[in-house]
Design a protein around this nucleic acid. Structure first.
Lengths: 231, 231
DNA sequence: CCAAAAGTGTTCACGGTACACCCATGC
DNA sequence: GCATGGGTGTACCGTGAACACTTTTGG
């Protein structure tokens, strides 16, 4: 397929880029790929690529994620579109950025078919990034900080069953401040959207913690009744 | 300039569209233009157009607004990017939508150089709209409803000096619910970001109301100190 | 017995909410 | 004097925030 495409006016190229967040060892991580083509060959960048004319923006984001990082079935939401003139040194490129949340514990697989390498980096220790991707990650992180307070998206970063302390630490990590354990537990449990499971921690050198899970069904039922999540 | 532009892969066209809100006679209005070319010729649509390769997205939005509606110097913010496959019947077009807030009282001028006509329509009585513009307006309105609660953007819709009751009605209109006058006044004034002016209403068949103005300088000072607006 | 994390209640202050009457003005 | 909208205060309740000790377990 060597067909070329001709238009009466110059068109900016259109791409999607994805900021994929994961949570592991009480740290927020971002999935990056090592570029195997110029520009910034060998450098780290957000997974992403050109939008095809026969796919929607979201479809493009999902496809690129799958091709480059083998990540699938995750929380995905549009973030912002970036259109600075010199954000790509080759030519004018506008990118629609998405951010995604993955249950890292259930997505160990890394590196898709296209990228040289895909790796998780702590948000606190990112490598030098290609294009304006550092700025995009900053915007994504701010969005995550805001979102986590009024929508239960934090659970997208945790395994299906988790210790209560895991949500607590997750919130401390994302909001970057200490949280009062008693008040947090009181508030979170009072909303009635997470349920305690039978199972408990095993083989720990301290009192066993209960496992919990997010009750998405119940949450959606409550939303319909006018409930609004808030932390 | 009859140059054509050729690319190895097909590119979606890229446009910007603007949802411009105004407030008049206690109603929210949206600025629409009547299209003078196909498709939807003669129909109403959001002001907008193609993004040129030498301008940023925001510059494109500002330019289109000026050309089509003669609106300038307004609050403008990116809303969302829409990329459904069939949103434009001609070909694949992705649009980056912006929303804007104007002081309608100071922007009576209508109709720019490009559009056949530009008119303000009450949000409650929009005509049939071209493309997916109805959906875009809905998203914009939801954003406005959310935004007005945690940022003082409502003042962008009011004249520089306004009666206190004007903000009150503005909030009732946007949030679509009754607001308690005493509580609202207490809260709004307690934030210290609007100041009472000397002038009062004239020639009204009731007690004269004071004029107020939004103190943007003070607001920005307070923001730096960690203050956050909330209604 | 020690270290480590889980789990648990109470008090206080502040802010949100509900609520109704008088004031000034023009006609 | 009447219609119209402007302007004002209080009481109650619920929620957010501060705060420390006991429990369980493995080593």
């Amino acid at each position: 397929m060597n067909k070329t495409h001709t238009y009466s006016y110059a068109r900016p190229a259109l791409t999607v880029d994805c900021v994929v967040f994961g949570y592991e060892e009480e740290a927020l991580k971002v999935l990056l790929i090592q570029r195997n083509i110029e520009p910034f060959k060998g450098g780290w960048a957000l997974p992403g690529g050109f939008v095809r004319v026969e796919e929607t923006l979201e479809e493009a984001a999902i496809r690129e994620l799958k091709e480059e990082t083998a990540v699938e079935n995750i929380y995905l939401e549009q973030l912002y579109s970036f259109g600075a003139l010199q954000r790509d040194p080759r030519e004018r490129v506008v990118t629609v950025a998405y951010y995604a949340l993955v249950k890292l514990s259930e997505h160990k697989a890394q590196g898709g078919t296209d990228a040289a390498d895909a790796r998780w980096f702590p948000l606190e220790a990112l490598p030098k990034l290609a294009f304006d991707h550092k700025q995009i990650i900053e915007v994504a992180f701010k969005r995550l900080q805001a979102k986590v307070r009024y929508e239960p998206v934090g659970f997208e970063l945790l395994p299906k069953r988790f210790l209560f302390s895991a949500i607590e630490h997750l919130y401390e990590t994302i909001l970057q401040r200490k949280i009062d354990r008693r008040n947090f537990r009181k508030k979170m449990l009072s909303m009635g959207i997470i349920k305690q499971l039978e199972e408990q921690e095993e083989n720990v050198a301290h009192r066993k913690g209960h496992y919990y899970s997010f009750d998405k069904k119940e949450y959606e039922k409550m939303i319909k009744k006018g409930f609004s999540f808030e932390i």
